[in-house]
Design a protein around this nucleic acid. Structure first.
Lengths: 211, 211, 211, 211
DNA sequence: AATGAATGAGAATTCATTCAT
DNA sequence: TATGAATGAATTCTCATTCAT
């Protein structure tokens, strides 16, 4: 069997096992067995548990980003871009729950090497959203552009909301509940956030001390 | 030294070590040493590593919920309740980064026993938010109440946004940047979400297919 | 059983096993078993295979140096000091063949950490001999002192000769041959080297181009 | 590429790697790579790691013996034969440090199979020296020949001194110091040992109990 | 003549956990 | 209340060695 194929099988198996057991608890034995190969071969191709985990992160991260990018039509107006981007996000995470678990549950909780990689991926998502908010503001005819700090904060909040919603809705779907389609999740999030974004784009803010 | 005191020292130490190392990597040795007690004593008081971790989760969770509850004045109108609740949330997580790390980074990534406990906590936060959204709707004179499913989804999204924002703003503060006060974080989130919540309360929805 | 005692048993066992199998081939399992303890206990007390090997080197080295020091009377004339020092050396190496094997066969052939420790020990022996040669020269009324370089070379040669002779004579004794007492070994070496040292001390040299 | 050439490349590589890493630590992977061949080919030609190491020992041993033999003119008087033999020895070991490391550091510390081979080589060197001492004695008109035992001991001591001196002087040369030519090393050793050998050849011994 | 693919066996090391006191 | 002493079980990783081609 050619190396490339075997290697993909191994990463497949690793994603599954890491998702199920967590990074530390997952054993290379189990991964090798699930991949249908011997442990030494796994080490020969992927060097170490750490490298293998990194490979999983990278592969799943690229796939997720690609899915979001593919869903959002760059020529559409901002709200439709956000809408389709979210649908892409929810659809992909629902279709690849193991990859999602590795990225958002496992990788973040294990020190430097991995947290950084995930942080970099997340930053790329945040960047997309940041750009989107800026475009919304411009399209809305906002005279005074929002400060970069605030835009960043909003983007982080939005990404966090999407992640949380994905986790919740996937958990429901996974456990046999009625499930939540990517459409419903995206709708919920648009309903929650779009009005606020538009307001901000037009200089309307919520003030803490309302009479 | 009375048992109660010793036990608290142990949980204190455990929270710190679990936050720093993660559940699997943390060793009972290190926890015992940091607590200034011998390992057998830790076992005598707290039974097992699992139980100890559970104790950490419970204690930190109660503290966080209490902080949020204490911040929100139940007599105030819905938007001010949310506003103060968020401020309480951001202030508490910033003040107890180890507890926050245990709850949101560690506990979620380790199978059944812990994930369930964290889920339960989260549910209580979600419940608070759910109630709040319902109140908002009622105050807004909404005739047709929102379906429970949707409210749950919104609450999860909101909590996720808050968590993400807390992580971002705490990281900035921690690394010596100008920092982000709990006030600013809460403001950002109110600006993002309040308009949407109000709209929903009044039956105004964002529609995917706008011309 | 108190820690000190256990620890000595472990080092005893380690010296024996390292001597028999060599550093790499020796297994911690075998050492632990021979010491009558479990592997984790060995690690608890001695940290790692490397540290354990270092401990062996240090202990055996100190013992050998002490034996040589104890044998040579510092007040005696140079030739008698050398004579008794050699007897002490041969007697000790014969009595502790495992320690000797660890020091001279195993430790030297395993990279930086150990080779350096053995080199340091050896240097202390060489220093003793160097001093001795210098004294011989002075006692012999040598007007022009020998260059330090040459004295060092002589000392290294002498120590090497002693080591080699010890190895040979111990191997013979060990394999059931008639054996070679420490007295005989020391005599052989004195016969080989003393005349040359005396000559040098008196300025008489061997010249390569004799007519 | 003809087998003979390939095989030599392999042994070349093996000597280098064994010298650098030691027998156990050296990996067949590294040797094969350095030899520019695949591992199975190494096994095809040289059977096993053990056999490969043996081949290294044999080749380097033959080379060293040949160098010493070539240096000593069998027709010269004993002292000049020793002198030139030593020069040959020091020159060869300095020129082939890897081979020397394999023979004197690695091979001796690994059980039966190799130690025996090295012992056999050493014996051949010792034989040369033994013969030389016997000749010296005869030339010196010694009536009562020295006992074989003693001659063997002397030869071992002399060879050990040479090895030690070679190690010392090569280390100095290697580390950028002024270096010690083979001529200087040989001179040092002649000065140390020749007078004693001559004395013994003439029946003059050093006596332990001098007044 | 030559190799890419594959592995069985065994190494060091760590850890949660328990006695005996 | 408190602990020094001790371990069974598991984990990552390495290596010499062999097929099938």
């Amino acid at each position: 069997m050619p190396r490339e194929v075997r290697e993909r099988q191994m990463v497949d198996a690793a994603v599954e096992v890491f998702a199920r057991r967590g990074y530390r608890t997952a054993s290379m034995d189990e991964i090798a067995e699930l991949a249908g190969a011997s442990k030494p071969l796994v080490y020969l191709y992927l060097n170490s548990k750490e490298d293998l985990f990194s490979a999983c992160i990278r592969r799943e991260a690229e796939a997720l980003i690609a899915a979001v990018r593919a869903a959002a039509d760059p020529a559409a107006p901002a709200d439709r871009r956000l809408w389709h981007g979210l649908r892409g996000f929810f659809a992909h995470t629902a279709a690849h729950p193991d990859g999602w678990a590795v990225l958002y549950c496992q990788a973040r909780s294990h020190g430097e090497p991995f947290a950084l990689e995930v942080a970099a991926l997340r930053q790329r998502l945040v960047d997309v959203v940041t750009q989107l908010i800026a475009d919304t503001a411009r399209d809305g005819g906002c005279v005074k552009p929002l400060p970069g700090e605030e835009v960043s904060g909003l983007a982080h909040a939005l990404v966090g909301a999407a992640e949380s919603l994905a986790g919740w809705s996937n958990a429901r779907t996974g456990s046999g509940g009625p499930g939540h389609s990517d459409r419903e999740a995206a709708e919920t999030l648009m309903n929650l956030a779009w009005a606020g974004l538009e307001n901000l784009a037009n200089g309307r803010r919520w003030a803490p001390a309302r009479p």
